[in-house]
Amino acid sequence: MEPVVDFRGAVCLLGRFPALAGVDLDVARGEIVLLQGPNGAGKTTVLRACAGLVPVVEGDASVLGVDLRADRRAVRHRVGLLGHASGLYEDLTVADNVRFWARAGRAHDADADAAMARLGLAGRLADVAVARLSAGQRRRTSLAVMVARRPELWLLDEPHAALDQDGRDLVDSLMADAVAAGATVLFASHELDRAQAVAHRTITIAGGTVAVDRSPAGTAAPGAPAPTGAEPAVEPDPEAVVS
């Protein structure tokens, strides 16, 4: 199957600190892949590297067929990244934000309105300034932007964070719908029970490398490091500002 993410010995630096120290990672089209690992392991850096926001300085890395070492900017408009920050204008309303970012991604207002309805943001909430929203409502708004833009690769960093039970269920169904529509999902989470139930495959990141790559049945993925049964110890690194 065509690889959407193909990293071979990928190294990324945050300042002089190697946040990724030789990552080998394959994600096939239509997969939902969970990244797990301790804080500071490099999960967020993997997601940001896939989005073309962090340069890969050594090794090979391609996303959606784009060589990130040659031109990482070329992939950006084809991916969607839900990070820790909302990426929203505080003084604009929910509808203003979703429509602006949807139009920026060549989507239509109808897509934005449908996404807001799907995320439970239609009606009264649509006209509320983002600054007045709760953390969960902001998260829903950021997700609505992603749904409206229909990226080919969804990169989600703790997508369930700040959401209530309904919101968490909604995130799971959004990921399933995205994959059904031909997209691919790579997400990081600490909520392992919920995340592993959704994911087709779980990859453990530790110390900036892939430590374990296994399918839900517990078998190591082809070409992956052999599971050891115990996750490797990770030295907490004070410089690892991004988890």
């Binding site: 989005a51 073309g52 926001l53 950006r76 990244l81 990070g83 990426g87 929203l88 204008y89 991604g105």
Partner: peptide, 17 residues
Amino acid sequence: AVEAADGVTDALRLSGL
């Protein structure tokens, strides 16, 4: 300031604009 707040700069880079 509005473009630097709460991840908007990254959103602009990813926007396709």
